[in-house]
Design a protein around this nucleic acid. Sequence first.
DNA 1: TAGCTGATAGCAGTGACTGCTATCACGACT
DNA 2: AGTCGTGATAGCAGTCACTGCTATCAGCTA
Lengths: 193, 193
Amino acid sequence: MGRWEPNPRGRLAKAAIELFTTQGFDQTTGAQIAARAGMHERSFFRLFPDKREVFFHALETAQREAVAAIADAPEGTAPIDAAAAALEQRCAIIQQHPGAALIRHGLIEANVELRERDLSKHAELATGMAEALRERGTPEPTARLAADTAMAVFRIAFDRWIGDPEHQDLPTLFRDGLSELASILAHRRGPSG
Amino acid sequence: MGRWEPNPRGRLAKAAIELFTTQGFDQTTGAQIAARAGMHERSFFRLFPDKREVFFHALETAQREAVAAIADAPEGTAPIDAAAAALEQRCAIIQQHPGAALIRHGLIEANVELRERDLSKHAELATGMAEALRERGTPEPTARLAADTAMAVFRIAFDRWIGDPEHQDLPTLFRDGLSELASILAHRRGPSG
DNA sequence: TAGCTGATAGCAGTGACTGCTATCACGACT
DNA sequence: AGTCGTGATAGCAGTCACTGCTATCAGCTA
């Protein structure tokens, strides 16, 4: 039963999120997820390397979009602007589903393993963005500095936004964060001291 | 045997690093680490929450030192300068033992679990630094922006340094990274576009 | 000597994850 | 229609990280 039905990874991800949301991450076993999607535990672990990964299934396309946004940025765009534009676009998408973001965030906050994997995913995204910048001709360490910084500002903006998603604008928080950071760095003691 | 001997966590950490270095992280079991330190597997998992954590035992003091450095910074120091000084001090300490840094880095690179925990530890350090800045009166989001940015620049500087530790100066790489980032942000399109 | 306290040993269990093998669905070929 | 190759799935058995529980021990105190 359930054999050869389409989109097995998507079905598993859907089943997993449902179970995580209702029972919690720890209380959900790989076998339960597989059973809910109509397949065997062994198949689950073949399609996803581990139980954490299925939680971040939707991020796969997001990562591709961000990298594509950088690759498609107009020629001559400054690295930091290309990276910022990619994440600002992501801000807008996230803001369209505040409820989903809240559930996701709640699960991540409640579980250390998910929090670690979340960090890892963001690091991966930053690495991908840096790579995309490098392919546009941005040299190191500029590429990584721009990508990692944009990512850090994004994380901070998101954490503030998720505290009150209905009354704040995520893209604005992100832009303001970048401006604030520019000001912070402009007023440092400087390389001479 | 081995019961009541002093510094059980330190002994376990020493045994663990030795085994990780010779056999690899995956090939080393909790029972092996405990046995080498002269105790029972159960005691190992009471003293360390998991197998990854023992690898980062030495970082505990480093974290305290960085936070203390921020707290002890001269009054009136800009947040980014306080954070940068704390990490620059850490750069100098790391550079004193390039061999140890190389071994550590090799193990982290070779193992996904360790890489994730490493990210987590750095995030923890950034959080601690932001907290220390806040206690000095730095408001949000400035505190987190300064701490996370300094941390990101530190990571990039470290990754470059570890590629050739004998012919590069880590504190210099870190300072140059900060300058470069300031320049990158100064030349962005700006908040108006 | 007896009793208290905190740390350790030891057992038994859960669940994530893996290697191996048998089996199945589907298309290609005859 | 029958056969065969291919890739995906089921199912079993095993390892190991990690946990709860209980018995036991070292050292201190009365």
